[in-house]
Simulated scan of single mutants.
Amino acid sequence: MFRRILLISFALLMSGCATKYTAQQDYSDDFDFEAIERFAFIDTEASVNAQLSGMDRDRLNTAITSELISKGKQPVAVNESDVLVTYFLVTKDKTKVTSSNTGGYHGYYRRGHYIYGAGVNHVHTKNYVEGTLVIDFIDTKTNKAVWRSSLKKPLEKLDTPQQRQQSIDAAVTELFKTL
């Protein structure tokens, strides 16, 4: 019985590690994305927030620039761009609650008596922070948003600058997957 519980717990743990996060996109049907040749970054009030340090903003700018260059777009000055790129991060405190049961109600006969017992429920809670990274494209001709991609996932503790860059690169790659 213990071995079975251990195997089930391990399988659940491993399936949790394999979770794939998928970005959500929204876009304007009227805008021709193939016509985009040049882009520039702009800062808005929403994009300059306490959750993103200047170093993380630089990492994001580098990752977004790399993705757009790989798609044939070129970074230029704001007044020369076809689209303006802006992004922001929203965080939310979350709690995950799980429960497990060590077995159902059971009984057995022993030494002339019936003995009954019930399983034990265990409730576990985990507090974490969920982050949502949102990237917007704004058409420079109309000054309206024409594309948005967002990705939600629990924020991880990252100890090194390399881990932070890898995490940001992976998120940005997912955000631009369908563009």
Rank of each mutant, 00 (worst) to 15 (best):
M1W: 09
I5G: 09
L7G: 08
M14A: 15
S15R: 02
A18Y: 14
K20E: 14
T22M: 06
Q24C: 00
Q25F: 11
Y27V: 01
F31E: 01
E37Q: 15
E37D: 11
S47H: 06
N49P: 02
A50P: 00
R57G: 10
D58F: 07
L60A: 07
T62H: 07
I64A: 03
T65N: 06
E67W: 14
I69E: 12
I69W: 04
K71Y: 07
K73V: 04
K73Y: 15
K73T: 08
P75S: 00
N79M: 09
D82C: 05
V83P: 03
V83H: 01
L84V: 11
L84F: 14
L84I: 09
V85W: 08
F88C: 02
V90K: 12
K96A: 12
V97Y: 02
N101E: 06
H106W: 10
H106C: 02
G107P: 04
G112H: 10
H113A: 12
A118N: 07
H122Q: 07
V123T: 15
T125L: 08
Y128D: 11
Y128F: 15
E130S: 06
I135L: 12
F137M: 13
F137V: 05
D139I: 06
T140C: 04
K141F: 05
T142A: 10
T142C: 02
T142L: 00
T142Y: 03
K144G: 00
K144P: 00
V146I: 12
W147D: 05
K153E: 06
E156Y: 05
E156F: 00
E156K: 13
E156R: 08
D159A: 15
P161H: 05
Q162N: 13
Q163E: 14
D169H: 03
D169I: 05
T173W: 05
E174C: 11
K177P: 01
